[in-house]
Design a protein around this nucleic acid. Sequence first.
RNA 1: GAGCCAGUAGCUCAGCUGGUAGAGCAGCGGCCUUUUAAGCCGUUGGUCCGGAGUUCGAAUCUCCGCUGGCUCACCA
Length: 497
Amino acid sequence: MEDFNQLIQIRKDKLKTIREMGVNPYPYEFNQTHKSEQIKNNFEELEEKTVSIAGRLMAVRLMGKASFCHIQDEQGRIQAYIRKDTVGEETYRLFKILDIGDQVGIEGKVAKTRTGEVTIFAETLKLLSKSLRPLPIVKEKEEDGEKVVYDQFADKEMRYRQRYVDLVVNPNVKEVFVKRSKIITAIREFLDQQDFLEVETPILQPIHGGAAARPFVTHHNTLDRKLYLRIANELYLKRLIVGGFDRVYEFSKDFRNEGMDRFHNPEFTLLELYVAYKDYHWMMDFVEQLFIHTAQKVNGTTKLQFSGHEIELTAPWKRLTMFDAIKEYTGKDLSQLDEAGLRKAAKELNVDLSPEMGAGKIIDEIFGELVEPKLIQPTFIMDYPVEMSPLAKKHRDNPRLVERFEPIIGGKEVANAFSELNDPLDQRQRFESQMKLKERGDLEAQELDEDYLRALEIGMPPTAGLGIGIDRLVMLFTGQHSIRDVLLFPQMRPEKK
RNA sequence: GAGCCAGUAGCUCAGCUGGUAGAGCAGCGGCCUUUUAAGCCGUUGGUCCGGAGUUCGAAUCUCCGCUGGCUCACCA
């Protein structure tokens, strides 16, 4: 720490010197005419033209009365050449005491150096912001066309806690978040083209409905009442379908008070959308088109590289009922078995069960263990056991099942959809069986929402609904293996002083 | 929640079966007007994650704790 303070103290001393030179180390603006990649990509056109760039000083090679440095801006890095004779004595003196990490603006002519690198031959240089805290120094070298990185800033804890440093120093991190933004834009564009209305529903909810999860609890002082941070927005969006909006969607931050691992962060982004007069068959076609549109817009192809697999998103995707999928991958037909029979089958398949699991949960367990990880190419798994889906409509041919599907890609589900339950009496019964689970100690069982039932009693049209975990979608589209790598500021334990 | 691994300079790391801490980069002082991991000479810098124990002596061994990573469990 002593040493660290020393490094900062040296920079503070330099700051003082700079002020004494009559230079404002924190000026108010700078006129940028170009960015780094733009200059490199349009060299012929810009050669010998004057440009001005702004960015962070990332490398300095000082040689007496002339120097090379690299400036990093939003697009990348570009080299600048600073000559004492050209910029003048005062400016060169300033340049010599600048540190890596300082923000500078440079104006000069574009040309190539002897070794062929596009370089700005500086005529003026302006300090735009003095950095007081040292940055990790990452060096790169080209070797046989391969980029070798030295001293990479790799400590994950520090990368997540100080994302601003991570972003400065690890350029590929930036790409992930640019892509994340493009994905959301592409989805929004697709939905808007299809006449959806983007809406906003409450984050603070008196009843946490729409999913099975433990909530965060908070308190409203004026109303003196308990409120929950939403775990889903499903019940509000369906109230809007009742109200007469036929196509609605919301990108929502949802909150679940559960464990954290590479697939779970306490707050995450969920897209939910609802479409009146459609069912889950229609929704499967829709999901295919949504994914294809997004992949084309973001990656320019319907192929995805993930975990060493090449995934092809072109429609149609395989459609399998859950029972057929289990039969295909385990050889067992579970469709006619009762709970005892299912337990026996699970045992034969070496799937561990806990005693409180009901028939639906056992089926899901077998599926999750033995089938899901093998579904690499996009596959719709359809028709889930009724007990696990209290908001989905019963299957038109089989009352033990609901009309629900999940698309699985790369061995992981990326969405969840169903024909929405709109029979108010059936919905009340489903809530009541959830209440019984809750009494038995299931902390994730859903709450009975009297107002939602009132809305269904007013009457909801046949409706298809869809939820997509946006973070996991981004993981899939960017090839990242941890949710923390697609969240700018993942949740961390408090930093120890 | 469980198991495994890790924490040493600003960054990346070395430090063997215990003998009192090192390198490269960065920093600082020099030299250098086409360099690119620039180079050359010199040099500063450490609560070895924290605490307790064993020992003449602990970065190193033991225990407890903290933080993180990975895997599993829970969970969409």
